[in-house]
């Protein structure tokens, strides 16, 4: 499970950035004290427009960057104090993830299996399972540079799942993908849920969220605008459809307690 408490991330602004943003502030707050829990066997969705702070939040959860303040627990491990220990439980996939163009899929998978210290017996089982599931056998020994976008995405999925992580983080995983490739990702997210994994994914597409998620958090300008189940979101809906409701929530003035 994932437990984020009072998570905050500030970035220093350079003179150039201050000029571009037309501000005198020396720091920018990307995420402002947000808290949420993601439970195993559930899909938690982080929804928000571009620049809302979704990627920053997920990067903090994946231990890529350190929060300015707040706490993160991954399966009970303090991810800020013990990031390496926490990483063993995490699989991280983004829509913009690249692969090593000069290596073959099998070389990449073996490399990541080594980095995650997957034991040889478990590795062979995982490889077989994932290669069969994603139908990868035909291009395992071809260089990544010669593969199609769909094939590359399958390799990325395989690399993310090779160590059988119990927490899976997807950052806009379908962004820029065609319908068939995006469908593979959606299937993977559902599979993860069925296997009892903790799944968190970010998106700015309401229909995708509606299709998948159990718990929903709407973020805007680094702040939580909504946090509850998808069922509650539908029940409390004041607009005509989900997308309009999302826009309504995002555009609502910030209420301070």
């Amino acid at each position: 499970m994932i437990k984020a408490t009072q998570l905050r991330k500030e970035f220093p602004l350079s003179r150039q950035q201050r000029k571009e943003l037309n501000t005198t502030d020396t720091i920018a707050t990307a995420v402002a004290d947000i808290s949420f829990d993601c439970q195993p066997g559930q899909i938690f969705s982080l929804l928000g427009p571009n620049g809302a702070g979704k990627t920053t939040t997920l990067r903090m959860l994946a231990t890529l960057i350190k929060p300015t303040s707040g706490q993160i627990e991954i399966n009970g491990i303090d991810a800020i104090q013990h990031p390496q220990e926490a990483r063993k439980h995490i699989g991280f996939l983004t829509g913009s993830t690249g692969l090593y163009a000069r290596l073959t899929p099998i070389e990449i998978i073996d490399y990541y299996a080594d980095l995650y210290q997957v034991q040889s017996k478990q590795r062979e089982e995982r490889k077989k399972y994932l290669f069969d599931l994603l139908n990868m056998h035909d291009f395992l020994h071809k260089r990544i540079g010669k593969l199609s976008t769909g094939m590359k995405q399958k390799v990325s999925i395989c690399r993310t799942m090779i160590h059988d992580p119990s927490v899976v983080i997807f950052d806009e995983p379908t962004s820029g993908l065609d319908v068939i490739t995006a469908e593979n990702i959606i299937k993977l997210i559902r599979d993860c849920k069925d296997q009892g994994k903790t799944v968190i994914f970010s998106s700015h597409i309401m229909s995708e969220v509606d299709l998948l998620c159990d718990e929903l958090a709407i973020v805007h300008r680094g702040q939580l605008k909504f946090l509850d189940s998808m069922i509650t979101f539908r029940e409390r809906m004041k607009a005509n459809n989900l997308t309009e409701e999302f826009i309504r929530i995002v555009q609502a003035p910030i209420t301070t307690p």
């Binding site: 990067r59 390496q84 220990e85 983004t94 913009s96 690249g98 090593y100 995650y116 690399r159």
Partner: peptide, 14 residues
């Protein structure tokens, strides 16, 4: 540039 650094830095290696 290739976008591979993110995944590399999420592995449990210092």
């Amino acid at each position: 540039e290739r976008g591979t650094i993110e995944t590399l830095l999420t592995v449990p290696v210092s």
